[in-house]
Design a protein around this nucleic acid. Structure first.
Lengths: 148, 148
DNA sequence: AAGCTATACTTGTATTTGCAAGTTTTGTAA
DNA sequence: TTACAAAACTTGCAAATACAAGTATAGCTT
């Protein structure tokens, strides 16, 4: 039997904790925004990538997002199901498929980009230009440091 | 039939994307570190909180982490099951339980804090002191901005 | 003191996720 | 030309997660 009630050491939240929390806040925020325009949150990352470049295969999509392949596979299923994307045979390889946006998908991707830009802007709004630069620079370095 | 293959507009990854990606990198990193010392990743956030202060109720734990209550409920189940924590009646309220660490839990929490501090340190290692200060400051502001 | 609302927590169940194992195609090498 | 390994993708199934509904207690109001 232990438990001499430990005092609150009131530690300032650490780096990892802050990142995780911010990630969840961003997620919740985007979920709300997307629901407002009738867009399924789980389609969001893949639709975003395809909005920037389509006609690429699933492996390439996954690499851009740094998501596992099975995830891309199912996400594209959902995009196709929703009529936003279509798979076409890759003329260069019979085991790969190229993913294209449909007209509807292209329109949705456009909307999406607007929303993402706005939300990002709102988050960065309270920062000074120097803070913004430093923060983005740091984030870019930290997210690429571990990659080969 | 649409899909005139759109060009790669090679946009720099946005703020939200970078945060999400970094969050996943951190998760994976911690998962590895914890596995190495035989600690279940899903216990991690709650054990961390209890390491700083125990003898609080589940609602309070959840608030510190900003996690929903059902999550805390099950996480404490798991901690109890693992012999790291115990629930005791709250003398001030019969509907609340106070959660205390056991001796084993206290030891694990200590280990955990060491690991977390080290991992955070490693991530921040490549940053200049000024960058570190700015980054942490910005993260703190962004994570508290939305709270009432 | 009866009824109403809020707090603190738990649980049933449907959906999501993640891993590992599967398929088919391609490239390489004996 | 057969064999073997890797690439590109899919899928079955166990585990994790989320939502909503459930319990029990507390406080408040009239």
């Amino acid at each position: 039997m232990t438990g001499n009630r430990s005092e609150d050491h009131g530690q300032a939240p650490g780096f990892g904790f802050l990142i995780q929390r911010l990630a969840r806040i961003l997620d919740a925020r985007m979920k709300g925004e997307l629901a407002a325009v009738g867009l399924d949150f789980k389609l969001f990352p893949n639709l975003m990538v395809l909005g920037q470049q389509d006609g690429i295969n699933q492996r390439e999509i996954g690499q851009k997002l740094d998501f596992p392949e099975y995830f891309t596979s199912r996400a594209i299923d959902a995009l196709v199901e929703a009529g936003l994307a279509e798979r076409r045979a890759d003329p260069g390889s019979r085991r790969a498929v190229l993913v294209f946006l449909t007209a509807a998908g292209r329109a949705k991707a456009l909307e999406l980009q607007t929303i993402v830009a706005r939300v990002n802007g709102e988050f960065l709004d309270g920062l000074s230009p120097a803070e913004r630069r430093t923060t983005l620079d740091v984030l870019r370095r930290l997210t690429t440091a571990t990659e080969p």
